[in-house]
Design a protein around this nucleic acid. Sequence first.
DNA 1: ACTCATTTTAAACAAGCGTTTAAAACAAAG
DNA 2: CTTTGTTTTAAACGCTTGTTTAAAATGAGT
Lengths: 214, 214
Amino acid sequence: MLNFTPNSLKMTQDLSTELKIKEAAKRVFMAKGFDGCSTREIAKEAGMNVALVNYYFRSKGQLFQLIFRAALEDFMLSMVDVFSTDLSLESKMRIFIEREYDFLTKHPEMPGFIIGEMSRADGCGAGNMYWMKDKIAETGIFNDIQKAQEAGEIRKMDLLSIALILMSNCHFPFLGKPFVQNALHVSDEHYEQQLVLHKQYVTEMMINYLFINK
Amino acid sequence: MLNFTPNSLKMTQDLSTELKIKEAAKRVFMAKGFDGCSTREIAKEAGMNVALVNYYFRSKGQLFQLIFRAALEDFMLSMVDVFSTDLSLESKMRIFIEREYDFLTKHPEMPGFIIGEMSRADGCGAGNMYWMKDKIAETGIFNDIQKAQEAGEIRKMDLLSIALILMSNCHFPFLGKPFVQNALHVSDEHYEQQLVLHKQYVTEMMINYLFINK
DNA sequence: ACTCATTTTAAACAAGCGTTTAAAACAAAG
DNA sequence: CTTTGTTTTAAACGCTTGTTTAAAATGAGT
């Protein structure tokens, strides 16, 4: 009998368990963080035996690294592919903000997870993310910005500040939700509704500031 | 013999150990989070016996609540007292941003700690922070904003969006430092230098956007 | 039916956890 | 010196942690 699945003969159960654990781990790690959960909790969430976690992924740490890197790649993907188009710089930024709000609305726990776990002592430190800048550079966005600065179209400021302005106004509304919501007594519904308007506000604010009006 | 110290006869050692533990706990909790550290680690950091932590603070959880609430109050204090002055709304905002950057430069781990621990499942949830909005309201800043909106001086937008714009551009540069720094290969020195400029950029950007030019 | 490698299981491991205990050390008062 | 209350200590408690083990179950090839 023909079998097209590599590395394994029975696939239904096989890949299923590995995937189930990986997806359970993703859910649990993102909700509680590396320190905030146990191997047994992940196993239970996946409906599997504890030992299977280590059978497929060797250790809690390695499973975490897998999840973390995947999350990081997801996180970058929505950014990067907008920059690769041949739209104007202003359009790129507008669409970038749009996409960022879309993505974060679907995955609101993402920025907290990544930033939170990156600050951990033994968290996936510097070395693991060296590919990121290169990935962004490949899109040519850095050149676009430099050209636009030389042409006097956008304000001459360090790339870091441009990145900070964009990320601050896209990510903080999701990152800081638990704090801001409690501090101002805002309901979930009102918060989510306001985010739609907020996206438009910050788009206008940032474009107005970054781009020099003739 | 007269004794003015309450609840205790010898004070030098007494308050010293309690304070040492509290300060060690503050350091450790802020660096590693509630789940990321142990009672024994706090005791060792304070140079004290493990049991003393529970002798003075009953449990790890109660000690944490103490530290967390104190951090939250510190966090609010720098905001609130600017708003209580009788400066113009624009001046208040300018000084607010200035103070916020000053405070966060001295305590860069603060926003990550507060936001991170607030998202924890059993973290100090809603009930504990009901005082915050009242504390801000007492300063009259909410009225100032409403008046300014009715007078057409500042843009008519929900209070939530105004708060989000201010906090995003003040807190994210510190919150997201580990991520942004790694993503763009930025050294500590450059990052800190740029933050001084960044503060001026975002001040101009926010004021320009929020206040309607005649 | 038997083989053999893979997958799953229950049980166990040492280590670390938060917390408690009971005794020791201490310091002031009578 | 003895008493009395507080502070500090070492040791232990029961429990959970990450990980390993060795046996059981599984399923395809011969």
